[in-house]
Design a protein around this nucleic acid. Structure first.
Ligand SMILES: [Mn+2]
Ligand SMILES: [Mn+2]
Ligand SMILES: [Zn+2]
Ligand SMILES: [Zn+2]
Lengths: 137, 137
DNA sequence: ATTAAAAATGCACTTTCGTTGCATTTGATA
DNA sequence: TATCAAATGCAACGAAAGTGCATTTTTAAT
């Protein structure tokens, strides 16, 4: 059994052929991907399967969903020891208005936010929109 | 000519009956509103008119659109001397997962974000999700 | 190996929200 | 009062997310 299969099983996800392919696809991309991107990459597979694969990955801590403000959900692999927890794992996302790509800035954790009395934070989303490094040259 | 009409004209928006009503509705609400909310409040008006009114208000700096992560656009009146500019006007938004309401925390400006070399910020969206003050009692 | 159960996949469809084209109405201006 | 531009209303469309159910594949037990 290879490494990816082992990884998926550790995450309690059955390593089907499709899931392994999608995992490899995500691992190879350095930007966040939309369902459509995966759909285009695997024309043979049904959209629903890809959709549910992403949901399964998300529920089991393999990917995190990214709301970059475009209205289209993006997904990216989680870091090695990520639990998607506020104050620890959550990082900034950057969406380039030129190339339309969204990237995880995993080194840039979201700062602690002070809230008014009575408010309880459970999740934070911080997205910066602008021109990315590739497009600003 | 009353105060609201004057205000709209200052913003280069012709103060029609519908627009005045929608402005009053927004001014009276202390939470961000969705198109559907306005639709329900003004059953007689067409959804398209309400939609375009919000767009007009947004283009002329009367309201700002809020992406709270629910996938449904919300709108709220801008502050007195707001230009919706990064580093000055942009504030934190809070979405309550219990009552599903979204509020502007206008006193909580978005902190300056350090980006990697080459990245240029043009806009920032910071949304905290959790339990609001009303729901946490 | 054979079979039964569970899980994954594929297909068709629905829903929701945002958006647009165009005809009609309203309102400002001359 | 006539004219023109802007606002409104109606009827669609389109993208994306999501669901129900039949079929296939995989796992596990016999
Ligand atoms: Mn990320
Ligand atoms: Mn706001
Ligand atoms: Zn770019
Ligand atoms: Zn609440």
């Amino acid at each position: 059994m290879n490494e990816i299969e082992k990884f998926l099983e550790d995450k309690k996800v059955r390593p089907t052929a499709m899931r392994i392919l999608i995992y490899k696809f995500l691992a190879q991309k350095e930007v966040a991907v939309a369902l459509t991107d995966i759909e285009n990459a695997f024309a043979k597979a049904d959209r629903t399967t890809l959709y549910r694969t992403l949901k399964t990955f998300e529920e089991n801590g393999i990917v995190h969903q990214i709301d970059d403000g475009t209205g289209i959900s993006k997904y990216a692999l989680c870091e090695k020891d990520c639990n998607c927890e506020i104050e620890q794992d959550l990082h900034l996302h950057f969406h380039c208005s030129n190339c339309n790509e969204t990237v995880c800035l995993t080194e840039h954790k979201i700062p602690h936010i002070n809230l008014p009395e009575g408010y309880v934070a459970e999740d934070v989303n911080l997205v910066v929109k602008g021109i990315c490094e590739k497009c600003s040259n």
